[in-house]
C-alpha cells in the first residue's frame, strides 16, 4: 500500500514540474512584459481586452494585488524586481522614496494629455485615473430606524447616527487614509482633529479594509459605510438598496499612476505598453470604468450618473495635496492610533 502512495507522489511531482517548466518557458518569450497593478479585476479584464486588439503581438502578464499587498511585494522584491511596469497604483504609495528610486523617467507619447499636476516633476510616474471617497448609505436601514439621509461629513456628527457608521481604519487601508487626510487638509489640522474626535463618538467600527465598510452597509449591517465611489456604484448595480453620497465638503481622492521600472530588461516593450495607456482606446476604457480620469476624452457612463455621480466630477472633488499626504503619513497615523485605537 505504501508503494502505491509513493507512486502517486512521484507522478504528481513530475506533473507539477512539467507544468512549472511550461509556465517558465512562456514567461521567457521575447516580447512579453510583466505588469503589476491594483486595478480591480473586472476593470483590468476590460482594459486588457482592449489592449490585445491594439497590441496583438505584445504579451502582457498581469499580477493584480491590492495596493498594500503590492507595496509590500514590490519592496520585498526590490533586490531583483520581477516586473517591468507598475500600472494603476496609488500615488501615495508611488511617491514612497523607496519606490520612486526604482522607477526610470519616461515620457510616453501623448504625455501632454495628462495635466502637469498629475505627473511626477521628474517624469517617473503619471496618474491617469483615480477614485474618490463616498458614503454607502443603506436605504432600508434608514427607513427602519427613521434616520435622515446624510449629505456631508458634518451631518455624520448628528447623535442619531451613533453606532450606525463604519469607516476604514487609515492605518491598514489607503481609502481610510485618504478620507482622514482630506478632512485634515480641508479643515486644517487643529480643527480637523477636533472633527475626527467628534466623529469617533458615532463610529461603530474602524474596519481594516477600504471596501468592506460599503459592503457591510450594503448588507444592512450598518446604516452608513464610508468607502469610495466606485464600490458604491458597483454595489448599486449589483442590486443592493443603497444610496451613494458624495460628501458636500468635497470628496477626498487618490490617483492611480503608471511607471516604468528601471530594472526592466525589456524596456522597448514596456514603453510600448505605457504609450498605449495614453491612447484614445485606453482613455475610452478608463471612462467606462473609473470615476476619475485625468485625461479629457471620453464621457461618464450612464450607470455612473444613475448611481448619483455628477457629470462634472471636478465640482465634488477636494483638491488633495498628495505630497503632504505622503510626507505626513507616519505622523498622522501615529496620532490617529494613539487617540482612536487605544484599547
Amino acid at each position: 500500500m505504501s508503494s502505491h502512495r509513493r507512486g502517486g507522489l512521484f507522478r504528481s511531482l513530475i506533473a507539477g514540474t512539467a507544468i512549472a517548466a511550461v509556465a517558465g518557458i512562456a514567461a521567457a518569450q521575447a516580447d512579453s512584459i510583466t505588469v503589476y497593478t491594483s486595478y480591480e479585476e473586472d476593470e483590468l479584464a476590460a482594459f486588457l481586452e482592449r489592449m490585445e486588439e491594439d497590441l496583438p503581438d505584445l504579451e502582457v502578464n498581469v499580477l493584480r494585488l491590492s495596493t498594500g499587498d503590492l507595496h509590500a511585494r514590490i519592496l520585498a522584491e526590490a533586490g531583483n524586481p520581477q516586473h517591468d511596469v507598475i500600472w494603476g497604483w496609488a500615488v501615495t504609495s508611488m511617491v514612497d522614496p523607496r519606490i520612486q528610486d526604482m522607477l526610470e523617467p519616461y515620457e510616453p507619447a501623448n504625455i501632454d494629455r495628462v495635466p502637469e499636476r498629475f505627473r511626477d516633476p521628474d517624469g517617473r510616474w503619471f496618474a491617469v485615473t483615480g477614485y474618490m471617497g463616498a458614503f454607502c448609505v443603506n436605504n432600508m436601514v434608514l427607513e427602519d430606524k427613521g434616520l435622515p439621509m446624510p449629505s456631508s461629513w458634518e451631518d455624520l456628527l448628528d447623535p442619531v447616527y451613533e453606532g450606525e457608521i463604519v469607516m476604514p481604519n487609515p492605518a491598514s487601508s489607503g481609502t481610510g487614509y485618504l478620507q482622514i487626510a482630506s478632512l485634515l487638509q480641508m479643515k486644517g489640522e487643529e480643527e480637523g482633529w477636533e472633527f475626527l474626535r467628534a466623529l469617533d463618538k458615532n463610529m461603530a467600527q474602524y474596519i481594516k479594509s477600504g471596501s468592506r465598510p460599503c459592503n457591510v452597509a450594503s448588507q444592512g449591517e450598518y446604516a452608513i459605510g464610508a468607502s469610495y465611489a466606485l464600490r458604491a456604484i458597483k454595489n448599486i448595480n449589483e442590486g443592493y438598496p443603497i444610496t451613494m453620497v458624495i460628501p458636500s465638503e468635497g470628496a477626498g481622492n487618490e490617483l492611480e499612476a503608471h511607471g516604468l521600472m528601471a530594472s526592466s530588461d525589456n524596456k522597448d516593450a514596456a514603453k510600448r505598453f505605457l504609450d498605449w495607456t495614453l491612447s484614445d482606446a485606453a482613455v475610452d476604457e478608463y471612462y467606462n470604468w473609473k470615476e476619475i480620469v485625468t485625461v479629457s476624452g471620453g464621457s461618464i457612463p450612464q450607470n455612473f450618473l444613475d448611481a448619483g455621480l455628477p457629470e462634472d466630477i471636478g465640482s465634488v472633488m477636494y483638491d488633495m495635496d498628495f505630497a503632504w499626504s505622503a510626507e505626513n503619513r507616519d505622523r498622522i497615523l501615529e496620532q490617529w492610533q494613539s487617540e482612536f485605537e487605544s484599547e
Binding site: S66, S172, E341, E343
Partner: peptide, 25 residues
C-alpha cells in the same frame, strides 16, 4: 480579527497594519 474583530486589535492585525497598511517591514 480583521473581519469580525471591529476595534479589538491583536498582534497579528498589527503586523498587517505595519506590513501591508504602511509598508513598514
Amino acid at each position: 480579527p480583521m473581519v469580525i474583530g471591529a476595534n479589538y486589535n491583536v498582534l497579528a492585525t498589527e503586523v498587517y497594519n505595519q506590513v501591508i497598511g504602511q509598508a513598514n517591514f
